[in-house]
Design a protein around this nucleic acid. Structure first.
Length: 508
RNA sequence: GGCCCGUUCGUCUAGCGGUCCAGGACAUCGCCCUUUCACGGCGAAGAUCACGGGUUCGAAUCCCGUACGGGUCACCA
């Protein structure tokens, strides 16, 4: 189990909360590694100091923890390849970039951001949609390939800022076999000399990523499809360094339910559902975004739902907890096309998991929710009976209260629609008055109450529709809910009659 | 715009040359259960497998083209 050479990593950039697409990427990596007895590593790609967001790292760690995805190595757990934050690995990258320069596979570039921008602007005006720093254009730029050696030396020694760019061949086909997509091929003529080392001395994603994946002995790179266009560059870099490249798998994107385009962090709650696993609060800006956990989702349901967005076991089964996913997951079965996220299906999953829980378990989960709402927690037996009566209409644990609040305490007033539709003034009040009188001397069981009620209907020649809804309104204030007689038994004689009498006064 | 990737019911998907005039799930609708609502059960509707060419005795499945969609083109990841 542990002698596997499989090592995968999830390497988010801590620029904010992790969104659900990121969680899915982490999940697939985790499933792949666990199935093969490999290691799952959590690495932080924080080389862009301008985009640092406080709290993002903790958020990522906590989100994965909530999902049950635990790293074998990485930030927060440590491991043999520490540190796992790229910012802390900064000193080691430069030498790799310089190694490439020595091999004439990279070069120093002195063009400033402003100059580059100007060049791009000019190219655009000339009708050239996108300028590429490549085999051709690098000859007219300021770099160690065009400048005299002495001048390059002088600039370097004077401390002038510079970047290091990779030197790509002019016209070479780069191929690699993606585990999901098969052979992908791109010509270097369509690529550009990407910056490997930035002027601030930090590596770009490309350099840091390749160096870290290699030094951390990553065997498989499973990441989002947005990386597919730069995969050929990475392949070339492995070749330049003389390293064996890992296997690649580019995952399909998670799409927004409305229209097109990938689901992004900015979608936030705009579409009526969370895009983040946990609630997020940016302490600096005060921005907040809701999370699945806080919405009442079970991590099992969230994970199950997420796993099926882009993957299926190949048959009709669709309920899988993490351990089962580990057994069944398969990269080749991951679909190639993006998946539109459907919140309704997410809720359905939650409902399925809720229904697996016992009344006792639900009570344990519901109790803190009631306390938070300031609702008195009923005596244990009563609590369990309420849960038993209401749980089948709940998607979230909280729904047990929402759907049956009138069993925990007095109804929150009367449901307008029910009253306007079914309550006929004095006529209805008379029925409730009659029933209250009959129930007074009744043993308070659902069965006895129902028999008594039926006897009353027969006596008066009333149809159920004339008295049933009225009774229900009198007891719980609305027309929906579990069996009226079951609820009355649960409420007990005193409370039931009290409510009935109160309703007569309120609505008569 | 260049390059790359993709395209089966509204949505997620099964399907990897014949068993598919395409199966499941969510959503929708109907019936039953319940003299309420929900749950549950049963059922319906819903995909000319993007389109057009090939290959083959035979294609949703293989090949080519077209269209459409997406991704990507930063000293961001």
């Amino acid at each position: 189990m542990s002698d596997s050479n499989v090592r995968v990593r999830f390497a988010p950039s801590p620029t904010g909360p992790l969104h659900m697409g990121g969680v899915r990427t982490a999940l697939y990596n985790y499933l792949f590694a666990k199935q093969l007895g490999g290691k799952f590593i959590l690495r932080l790609e924080d080389t862009d100091q301008t985009r640092f967001v406080a709290g993002a790292e903790d958020y990522i760690v906590e989100a994965l923890k909530w999902c049950g995805i635990s790293p074998d190595e990485g930030v927060s757990v440590g491991g043999p390849h520490e540190p796992y934050r790229q910012s802390e690995r900064k000193p080691m990258y430069r030498k790799y970039a310089e190694e490439l320069i020595e091999k004439d596979l990279a070069y120093y570039a002195f063009d400033t951001s402003e100059e580059l921008e100007a060049v791009r602007e000019r190219a655009k005006e000339a009708g050239n949609a996108n300028f590429q720093y490549n085999y051709i254009t690098r000859n007219s730029m300021k770099n160690s390939l065009t400048l005299p050696a002495e001048e390059v030396q002088k600039r370097l020694e004077s401390g002038e800022p510079y970047t290091i760019r990779i030197k790509l061949p002019r016209n070479e086909e780069v191929k690699f076999e993606d585990m999901i997509r098969g052979w992908v091929s791109v010509n270097t003529a369509n690529m550009d000399d990407k910056i490997l080392l930035k002027a601030d001395g930090m590596p770009t994603y490309h350099l840091a990523n390749i160096v870290d994946d290699h030094t951390m002995e990553i065997s498989h790179v499973i990441r989002g499809e947005e990386w597919l266009p730069s995969a050929p560059l990475h392949i070339i870099m492995y070749q330049y360094f003389g390293w064996e490249a890992p296997q690649f798998a580019h995952l399909p994107l998670l799409l927004r339910p409305d229209g097109n385009g990938k689901l992004s962090k900015r979608d936030g709650d705009r579409l009526g559902f969370p895009v983040f696993p946990l609630r997020w609060e940016n302490k600096e800006t005060g921005d907040t975004a809701s999370g699945y956990r806080e919405q009442g989702f079970f991590p099992e349901a969230f994970i199950n739902m997420l796993a099926f967005l882009g993957w299926s076991p190949g048959d009709n089964r669709e309920m899988f907890v993490l351990d089962e996913l580990v057994k069944e997951f398969s990269i080749p079965k991951v679909s190639k096309s993006g998946a539109k996220f459907d919140f309704e299906k997410a809720k359905w999953y939650n409902q399925q998991y809720l229904r697996k829980l016992s009344n006792e378990e639900l009570a344990t989960l519901l109790q803190p929710i009631l306390e938070e709402k300031g609702v008195a927690v009923p005596a244990h037996d009563t609590f369990i009976r309420i849960i038993d009566l209401v749980k089948e209409r709940a998607v979230f644990v909280e729904d047990i209260y929402e759907e049956g609040h009138f069993l925990f305490h007095e109804p929150r007033g009367y449901d307008e629609k029910s009253v306007s539709k079914k309550w006929k003034g004095e006529e209805s009040a008379a029925i409730v008055r009659d029933l209250a009188a009959r129930f007074e001397e009744e043993e308070f069981t659902a069965e006895a109450l129902e028999n008594n009620f039926k006897a009353y209907l027969a006596e008066k020649g009333l149809g159920f529709g004339q008295a049933g809804p009225v009774l229900r309104i009198a007891v719980v204030g609305t027309m929906t809910g579990p069996s009226a007689f079951e609820m009355m038994e649960l409420l007990g004689k005193d409370e039931t009659l009290r409510r009935m009498n109160k309703t007569i006064e309120d609505l008569a």
